Amino acid sequence: MSKGTALIIGVGPGLGLALAEAFARDGHPVVLFGRDAERLKKYAAELTSQGFTAGAYQADAGDPEALRASLSQAVDDLGAPEVLVYNAAVLQTDTPTGLDATAWAQTLAVNVTGAVVAARTVLPLLRDGRGSLLFTGGGFALHPSPEYTTLSVGKAALRAYVQALHDDQRDSGVHASTVTVAGMIGGEDPRFAPEALAAVYLGLHHQTKDQWQAELVYA
C-alpha cells in the first residue's frame, strides 16, 4: 500500500533536510517548505535524482494565508498527507526587555501561530483521517534562557499547544507530538546530528496507538 505525503515545514540544510530524506527513504512523497525557493528546489531535485518523489514550495511560516495556500497546493499536486512536521522557528538572541510588541508578534507568528495554522490546515486533508502531526520543540521550553527569550517563550507555548492537540485528537487516528530537543542540533554530540534526530521523528510516526505520546524529550 502506498504511503501518504510527508509535509516538512521549515527546511534548511540541517534538521529540515534530514527529515525530508528520512521520510522519503521510508516511502513517502515529501514536500519541502521554506522561504528560500532556490535552495528548496535544489534539495527536491537531489531527492528526485535518487528516485524519490519530492516537491518544493516557497512559504513563510509567519504568513498564515501564504502558508495555507502553499499547503493546499502541495496536497493538490502530490496527494493527501500522512505526516506533517512543523520545524520552523525564529532563532535569534534577545532578552526579556529588549524587543517591542511588533518584534514579539513577528517571532510568535513563526514559533507558535504558524504551527497552529499548519495543523488546522492539514488535519482535514489527512488521508483517511489518519496520520502524524509532529512539531520541533526545544529544551528552552523546559528551561527558559534570558538570552533567547522569544525562542524560550515560543517553544513553551508550542509545547502547551501540542499537548492540548494531542489530547484533543486522542480518540481519532491522528498522533500529535512534539520532539523537545534539549541539545544543540548539529553540535559535537552525535546524538544531536540531524540524521539521528530525524530517525526519532520517524519512530514517533511509526508508533502504534497504544504507544502514542504527547511529547518526547530528547536529551
Rank of each mutant, 00 (worst) to 15 (best):
H166L: 03
L123Y: 00
P144D: 10
L108N: 03
D128A: 15
D100G: 15
R35V: 05
R68Y: 03
L133R: 11
L40V: 06
A156F: 07
K209L: 02
D76A: 15
H205T: 06
L125F: 01
T53F: 01
H143R: 15
Q106P: 00
A119E: 07
R127Q: 11
V179D: 06
L108H: 04
V11D: 05
I9Y: 05
Q163I: 00
I9V: 12
A160V: 06
T107N: 15
E215A: 15
V110F: 02
V162R: 12
S70P: 02
A74N: 09
T136R: 11
R35F: 07
Q92P: 00
V200M: 11
L78A: 09
E188S: 15
K3T: 07
N111D: 13
T93K: 14
L15H: 11
P190V: 07
G203R: 12
V83T: 13
N87P: 01
I8A: 14
D63Y: 00
T95C: 08
K41F: 00
S49P: 01
A37I: 03
P124W: 09
V30A: 10
A54E: 03
S172N: 06
E215D: 12
L204Y: 04
V116S: 08
Y148D: 00
H28L: 07
A141R: 05
Q58I: 02
H206Y: 04
E65Q: 14
D189F: 11
L197K: 08
R130W: 01
G131I: 05
G203W: 01
S132F: 05
L78V: 04
A164C: 11
V90D: 13
S72R: 14
D171E: 12
L134T: 09
P64E: 10
V85E: 09
Q211R: 14
P13T: 09
R39I: 01
V162S: 13
W212C: 07
R191H: 12
A56D: 03
A22H: 04
Y161V: 03
G131D: 01
V162F: 11
A176Q: 08
G139P: 06
G55V: 03
L202E: 04
L142V: 02
V11R: 13
G10W: 04
D210K: 14
E38H: 12
P96L: 10
L126T: 08
V116M: 14
G27K: 10
A109M: 02
T180S: 15
T208L: 06
Y86K: 10
L197C: 12
P96K: 04
H205N: 12
T95H: 13
T178D: 09
S152I: 03
Q50W: 00
A109S: 15
K42R: 14
